[in-house]
Amino acid sequence: MSDLHQRIIREARDWIGTPYVHQMNAKAAGCDCLGLVRGVWMAVMGSEPERPPAYSRDWSEPQGEERLWAAATRHLVSKRLVDGAPGDVILFRMKSGAVAKHLGIQTQVGPDARFVHAYSGHGVVESPLSAPRARRVVARFEFPTEEVI
């Protein structure tokens, strides 16, 4: 595992215990799943290349637009789903036919796969990437080795 991947995982785990607060990205104060990934980016990569606009809890479901996926594609490096590695950003579709609107950072692969994510009622936690959760992953990305703008 590269130094970059180790730094991403360390930083993601350092956010564990941060309360869930919609649209925030402040370690220990509050964040949502996007705020977690943004916070890890800023700690590891530096300034973020794009600030997200305000967003509702339903994201772009009413419009059926994959806005989160499009933003991830602009700034992260797309990977095949089968090429999972620690430090990857994983994008989930919470239900079939809905837009993808949940993010996490994978910390382990293999039979004991795990990821760090933030979700309502729980804050930032590290959870098993169990088969039911893994089936909901629709895209996988890695942080760029150089900032992508």
Rank of each mutant, 00 (worst) to 15 (best):
L68H: 07
G46Y: 08
G87F: 02
I16D: 01
V44G: 12
G39K: 07
G97R: 05
P86E: 14
A134V: 00
G17Q: 08
D112P: 00
A71Q: 11
C33V: 11
A71N: 06
G30L: 02
K79H: 15
N25G: 15
R136F: 01
T73V: 14
P49W: 11
E50F: 13
V125R: 15
R74Y: 03
I9M: 09
R133W: 12
A70L: 14
A29G: 00
K27R: 15
T73Q: 11
H5W: 00
Y20E: 06
L91Q: 10
G87I: 06
V89T: 12
I16L: 13
W41P: 15
K27L: 03
P52F: 13
G39R: 07
R10S: 09
R114I: 00
V40T: 07
R67S: 09
Y20F: 14
A71P: 04
A71C: 06
W59H: 14
R140A: 02
W41E: 01
A85D: 07
M24T: 03
V137I: 14
L36N: 13
T18S: 09
V109H: 01
A85L: 14
D32N: 09
E11H: 07
L91E: 04
R80E: 15
G97S: 04
V124K: 01
E65L: 13
S78E: 04
R140F: 00
C31L: 09
P52T: 09
D58L: 10
D3M: 08
V82I: 05
P86A: 15
V40C: 04
E11V: 06
S120G: 08
D14W: 07
G30N: 02
S96N: 12
P49A: 06
P49S: 09
A28W: 11
P132S: 05
R57T: 08
I9Q: 06
A118F: 11
G17P: 15
G64P: 03
K95D: 04
T107H: 02
V109P: 03
A131N: 07
Q23S: 13
D83I: 01
L34V: 05
V137D: 03
E126V: 03
M94I: 06
D88P: 04
A131V: 02
R80H: 11
V124N: 07
S96Q: 14
L103T: 05
R80Q: 10
T18M: 10
D14E: 13
V77C: 06
L34N: 10
T107W: 00
K79F: 04
G110D: 02
T107V: 04
R67E: 15
C33T: 08
H122I: 05
V109W: 01
P62T: 02
L81E: 05
P53H: 02
G123P: 10
G84D: 12
V21F: 05
R133I: 15
G110I: 10
W69H: 12
V37A: 11
R80Y: 07
P62Y: 08
V44D: 09
Y55C: 01
H22Y: 11
G17T: 06
L34T: 08
V37M: 11
Y119H: 11
V44E: 05
H22K: 14
Q108G: 00
